[in-house]
């Protein structure tokens, strides 16, 4: 579905991605984990061409993203829904207008239809009651869910999540995890989750990739991941107090 071929990126005078190769398959929930500043957001932004690699290529399906422009780029981007780290809601629009913005700007659908679709998506994130609130009246977790509703308003094939649980308390984080799993089953989407929260990655991921010093040092299923021999992965697991299989369990009820 998404394929990185030797992607290299320099930013601010440092090498952020160093010949990264990875392949994300259809319908999987691919988690990219790593310390802050490891280049997780940077790799996510490459997928929708918010950044262009210095060398290497990125494919989405059969399209090479780093050469796409104009209509081709719009078509590729249309396959994606993106939840940004801070939700990136427009502050002067209320929740309903934020979620419906892509439809209002790009289609000629009448307002009633847009409102109906917006309510439908807000229903999926359990936030219909916030329809006419402004973003700053919402908590961090609610804002991310609204951001998610906006990401799925155009029924994307792929959803990208940038740190969906960062800055949230553990209970809210697990709510978001369940939501990600539910959207995957309900909508049949491919998900890419960038996170430093290993609990979350282990709970929802079908595969986990560890990014360190601009390289992918491990790609494995959650079961293999916690048993990894890689020193960097071990250190990362220990730092989050995950040492044995007994200490985490996959969410049984998505």
């Amino acid at each position: 579905m998404i394929r990185f071929e030797k992607v290299t990126k320099w930013l601010g005078g440092s090498l952020v991605l160093d010949e990264v190769d990875m392949e994300i398959r259809q319908h999987e929930t691919f988690c990219i984990v790593g310390a802050s500043g490891a280049g997780k957001s940077v790799s996510l932004k490459h997928m929708v061409r918010l950044l262009t690699p210095d060398s290497g290529r990125i494919f989405v399906g059969d399209d090479c993203v780093n050469e796409a422009r104009g209509k081709d780029l719009d078509r590729v981007r249309n396959r994606f829904g993106v939840l940004f780290q801070g939700a990136a809601l427009l502050q002067w629009l209320n929740v309903g207008d934020n979620v419906g913005l892509p439809l209002r700007m790009k289609t000629d659908k009448p307002d009633e239809d847009i409102d109906r679709l917006v309510k439908e998506k807000l229903e999926m994130v359990d936030l219909v009651e916030t329809f006419s609130k402004t973003p700053y009246e919402l908590s961090g977790g609610m804002r991310k869910r609204v951001g998610l509703a906006r990401a799925i308003i155009e029924d994307p094939e792929i959803i990208l999540y940038d740190e969906p649980t960062s800055g949230l308390d553990p209970v809210t984080s697990r709510t978001i995890d369940r939501l990600i799993s539910r959207l995957k089953t309900d909508l049949g989407v491919t998900s890419v989750v960038v996170t430093h929260d290993l609990h979350s990655a282990l709970a929802i991921g079908t595969r986990i990739a560890m990014l360190h010093d601009g390289k992918i040092v491990e790609t494995a299923t959650p079961k293999e991941f916690i048993k990894s021999d890689n020193e960097i992965v071990k250190g990362f697991l220990e730092a989050q107090y995950i040492t044995t299989e007994a200490e985490w369990k996959r969410d049984p009820s998505p």
């Binding site: 993106v82 809601l89 913005l101």
Partner: peptide, 21 residues
Amino acid sequence: TMVVSEEVSALEVMSIKPVRY
């Protein structure tokens, strides 16, 4: 502020042209 909080990036990804909008 919109650039810093990734709102402009969000517009781009939604194919809403920031200049026009």
